[in-house]
Simulated scan of single mutants.
Amino acid sequence: MRFISPAKILNIGPEQVIMREYNSKYFLEAEFAAQNINMPDTIKRSVVKRQAEFLAGRIVARDALHAIHHDDCQIPIGEHRAPVWPEGIIGAISHTGSAAIAIVKKQQENAQVGLDMEVIIPEEQCDQLQAMLINEEERQLLKQQDLPWSTLVTLVFSAKESLFKAIYPEVRQYLEFLDSKVISFDSEAQTLSLQMIRHVESVTFRPRYDVQYRILDNNVVTLLI
């Protein structure tokens, strides 16, 4: 691998996510032209790390489109940095500093997609995050789980990010982590469920949002369909 590795399949429950590892140390701006991917003006003004992760994300997004037999296309940046998918397609992209993942689906009524990947948060940072991430009821539920606390905190962080991505096309606004809560957690099935607490005018939320997850070395991936 120089800049980016070949695509591989990451199975999360019954779904298949496209993943590629990349190394920003080997990134050159010419990679955009080589990949036939446009570099938006906002990305041109960004630091190299952001340019590399953006390109890696768009490459796996294209891989995901190919997986459902969709032709190549550019995927611009929309509101709140959300990708603008071609008509009839919904999807999500996520990345860490060394890997990018994506999944797309053909648009169907009430279909939603949320996907997120995070490096496991160091133990010493978890206490600082708890107040903005979970309430006391959630903390008690998580404490019953047989996983390291840092992994649990990261999973909840990531799951709520996936939820936000999934419902953003409806809510069109930023949400706080405490606007949703964990209502169940099953480490054997590798699933957790969230419920929206906040009311958003003209939006009808599901009674619960089931999120599947995978733990990969020092990373977690969460997926909401």
Rank of each mutant, 00 (worst) to 15 (best):
V48D: 11
E124N: 09
L129R: 05
I134M: 15
N11F: 12
D63P: 01
L163H: 14
K105C: 13
V113Q: 04
S98V: 14
C126D: 06
Q74P: 00
I225F: 13
I59H: 04
M39L: 11
A56V: 08
L28K: 03
W149A: 15
D41G: 00
Q212P: 03
Y174G: 06
M196S: 03
F3Q: 10
D146P: 05
H70A: 09
L216D: 01
H199Q: 01
E15Y: 15
E29C: 01
V47R: 14
D217R: 10
L147K: 07
S158Q: 03
R62G: 15
D146Y: 08
F164E: 04
L147N: 02
H69S: 15
L223D: 01
I121W: 00
T191E: 01
I90D: 11
E161C: 09
V47K: 12
R206E: 08
L115Q: 08
L223P: 01
L55M: 08
S162T: 09
Q144S: 11
L223I: 07
I90A: 03
L10I: 04
N135L: 02
I18L: 13
F27I: 05
E53S: 13
D71Y: 14
A7H: 05
Q190I: 00
R62F: 07
L223S: 00
F205C: 01
E79A: 15
I89D: 13
D210P: 01
D210T: 09
Y168P: 08
V119P: 05
Y26F: 13
Q144F: 00
A7S: 04
G88F: 05
T96M: 02
L175R: 12
I215F: 03
Q108F: 10
I75M: 00
K105D: 14
I225S: 12
V153Y: 00
R214H: 05
A33W: 06
A7Y: 08
E53D: 14
D63I: 05
P148S: 11
D186S: 14
V211I: 07
Q108V: 09
L163M: 11
A7Q: 06
